[in-house]
Structures are given as structure tokens and as C-alpha cells.
Design a protein around this nucleic acid. Structure first.
Lengths: 125, 125
DNA sequence: AATAGCGTATTACTAGCATAATACAGTTAA
DNA sequence: TTAACTGTATTATGCTAGTAATACGCTATT
């Protein structure tokens, strides 16, 4: 069963997006595996203190991306192969790093300074 | 007069936030200077194809942060000193880099790999 | 067979973002 | 002085995110 122990809701981003991202990051980190069982919508809703409809929206999006499958009465499970994992990894990393790089360039930050900032802040987090 | 030539609206973040950020980034980059005149709410609204109330919200937030001042009938101007610029710089950079570092750590990315990714993507943008 | 838990669907409500259409008072320049 | 432009304020509408309360049919387990 997939754990949401280290998951906390932040604001600024829709909750359903944060859940989708948490699952993707877990798959990339190797913490969440293929065929692993997702918590039921009602259970996760109770765990996170969030409305069941919000969980349902997250699960629906994951299903549309082919990352999980659901069966009425039974439950939901992760369904990813190695190729999908690689694609998700690229999708998340290039998106995140691209946003940062673009933002820093607009601030006239140099490449070496950008790397220095990343290394500095990396250790303080 | 402050230029919005290289500004394009993206979705996912409120438009008023994007405008606030654009001003802050311009100040950090040295493209926007103290005492420089902001475009009027109606003019910027027309330039960006956005409602005047959305511009007003952005300007109100900038005013609350002490980054601009407004006078009815006259207009609005940037009011920042060197100390404020340094503070805005830290605020933006540590926020952005912190979000990326935290996200990468959750994906079990190593520090050296993070730096390599940043350097790679930096040149492709 | 029955019950508990599962996914799924619907309706109603609140809050925030954005638009739309005005209105009013202060400043500036012709 | 008057006309144009400024910031400011108000009211109404639509959309999305999120909550709340149900309801229904399927599956697994007892």
C-alpha cells in the first residue's frame, strides 16, 4: 500500500495536482512500484483531511495518464513500465529545471552563479 | 516608462502574481530602476489584454510591499532602495531554488546530478 | 446471502480569479 | 478653465477549486 506519510498539503497549487505529483515523484524515487495498491479514495480523503471529490479528481488524472488503473468494488493500482517511468522523470525534471533556469535568466543571473546558488541552498534544505 | 515587451501571460499562476513577479525580476536584473514610471492601469490593461481590475490588484500588492507608490491623478512610480533590491533578490531566488531542490530530493536525485541537469538545461533554453 | 468497502456520479454551496461596465475625485497639460 | 488622463471604488457575472452530503452498483469476504 502506497504511503502518504511524508506528504503535506501546501497552498498555491491545487491539492489534486499535489497528489498527482507525489505519486509521480514516488515512482521516480523508486518508493512506489508497479502493481502497488493505491489507498481507497475514502481512506486517503480521511488521511489527508480532504474532500473525497478532490482525491477522485487526482486519481482520474492519474488514470488518464495511464499511471494507475481502477476497478469498481476492488480498488486502484499503479500500472507503469520502465519506459513510462523514464518519460515521467523527464517530464518532471525538465519542467522544474526549465522554469528555474528561465526565471534566473530573466534576473540576469549567470550560469556559474546559478550553480553556486543551487549547491548552497541544496545543503540548507 | 517600464516596458512589458518581453512579458507574456502563462496559465497556472494568477495574472496579478505574474505581473508582480515581472516587476521584481526587472528590478533585480537592473532593467527597472528606482523612480521609473509605471504604465497607467488602463494602458497596461490594454497592452496585456487583461482587465483593469487585475492590473489594479497587482499594483496594490506591489504598493503593499513598498515597491511602488501611487498618487491619484498623477500615476505610479517605482520606489526601491538598494537594501530592498537585495531583499527581493533573496526572496525570489531562495524561493525558486528551494522549491526545485526540495522536489529533486524527493525524487532521490543526487546533488551532482542536480547540478548536471541544471547546466544541461541552462544551455538549451 | 449478506455486509462492508470499493469506484463512480450527482447536486449544492463557498471562495478566489478574472471579466465587464460604470462612476467619481484628483492631477496635468492644452 | 476645460479636457484628458490618472488612481480608486462598486456591482454583477462566469469559471475553477474545494467542500459537503448523498446515492448507486460492483467486488470481496464472512
Amino acid at each position: 500500500m502506497i504511503s502518504f506519510e511524508h506528504f503535506t498539503i501546501e497552498d498555491g497549487t491545487p491539492i489534486y495536482s499535489q497528489i498527482v505529483r507525489h505519486i509521480k515523484q514516488g515512482i521516480i524515487a523508486g518508493v512506489i512500484h508497479n502493481r502497488e495498491e493505491m489507498p481507497s479514495r475514502r481512506l486517503l480523503s480521511a488521511l489527508l483531511g480532504v474532500n473525497p471529490n478532490t482525491i477522485q479528481k487526482a486519481y482520474r488524472l492519474l488514470e488518464e495518464e495511464g499511471i494507475i488503473e481502477s476497478q469498481a468494488g476492488a480498488g486502484s493500482w499503479v500500472t507503469v513500465n520502465e519506459q513510462q517511468i523514464g518519460a515521467i522523470r523527464s517530464q518532471l525534471l525538465e519542467g522544474d529545471v526549465g522554469v528555474l533556469a528561465k526565471s534566473m535568466k530573466q534576473m540576469e543571473i549567470s550560469k556559474v552563479e546559478a550553480v553556486r546558488l543551487l549547491e548552497d541552498i541544496w545543503d540548507r534544505i
